[in-house]
Amino acid sequence: MNIALRFINRSNDCGNSEVVLFQRNVVPEFDELAIAWRVIRYCGRDCIHPFAYSSDVEVALGDDHGNFSPRISAASGSRLVVAAHPGGRPRLAGSLESTLHSDIEVVNQLGRGAVNVNAYVAGHLMAAKSAVAPGQKAVFRFTPVLWIGVGSQIEEGRALASAVISSANTPFELGGIASADIVMTGGGGGERAQPFLFELENVLRL
């Protein structure tokens, strides 16, 4: 299900800062850094940037050469396996097994060779686990909570610096929401500069 969102800049920043949306790690043993899911740039004052968040997740394998397998849907609580393709390349396949919780698990059942596992939400990379060795698994747990913050030199689909993650302290719980506006205020320079603030407005619930 898609949630229609609109970012609205009502700050004094005039579109000079980069606004990043991401999800925090909710799996304790998941030691990868958070990924910049969406980066909003050059959005001037009173301007709008529409986008969508989805509860649907897709998973794909990747390697260090920039190659990716086809994406396949991964329902909450499902377990996927990495097996050898007849052509020799690893491939993702569904499993009849399901987890006892809402996690999405991707198990490497190859005889040899590590893989990178990527999870996508609304077509954009949300989380990744690199170098998953045979017998190991990547675990993703997605809740409808987005975090938002302001930074610089942020690349969409890349790991966020710890400073950006620690400074982004505004979570938005999107469960049960059909659409909403994310409004940014504050900013500016000099003595009148204010912290950036983010609030949900015009919330339409299911």
Results as ranks from 00 to 15, higher is better:
residue 164 V to R: 02
residue 107 V to A: 02
residue 153 Q to C: 12
residue 149 G to A: 06
residue 123 G to M: 06
residue 108 N to A: 05
residue 97 E to G: 06
residue 117 V to G: 02
residue 149 G to Q: 03
residue 177 I to S: 10
residue 147 W to T: 02
residue 113 G to A: 10
residue 143 T to M: 14
residue 99 T to S: 11
residue 149 G to D: 04
residue 146 L to W: 07
residue 175 G to V: 06
residue 95 S to M: 04
residue 148 I to L: 11
residue 91 R to D: 02
residue 153 Q to V: 12
residue 92 L to F: 04
residue 116 N to R: 09
residue 111 G to N: 11
residue 177 I to K: 08
residue 185 T to F: 01
residue 138 A to Y: 00
residue 187 G to Y: 04
residue 149 G to T: 06
residue 164 V to C: 10
residue 91 R to M: 14
residue 126 M to G: 11
residue 182 I to W: 07
residue 142 F to S: 09
residue 148 I to V: 15
residue 145 V to C: 13
residue 151 G to Q: 08
residue 119 A to L: 14
residue 141 R to K: 14
residue 185 T to Y: 03
residue 170 T to P: 01
residue 184 M to H: 06
residue 115 V to G: 01
residue 102 S to C: 10
residue 157 G to M: 09
residue 88 G to L: 03
residue 143 T to L: 15
residue 148 I to E: 02
residue 99 T to G: 09
residue 174 L to E: 03
residue 147 W to Y: 15
residue 140 F to W: 05
residue 186 G to F: 07
residue 157 G to Y: 09
residue 123 G to F: 05
residue 168 A to F: 06
residue 94 G to Y: 09
residue 105 E to F: 01
residue 136 Q to R: 10
residue 179 S to R: 14
residue 186 G to P: 03
residue 136 Q to P: 00
residue 90 P to I: 03
residue 101 H to A: 15
residue 110 L to Q: 06
residue 106 V to K: 00
residue 185 T to M: 03
residue 145 V to W: 08
residue 169 N to T: 15
residue 188 G to P: 04
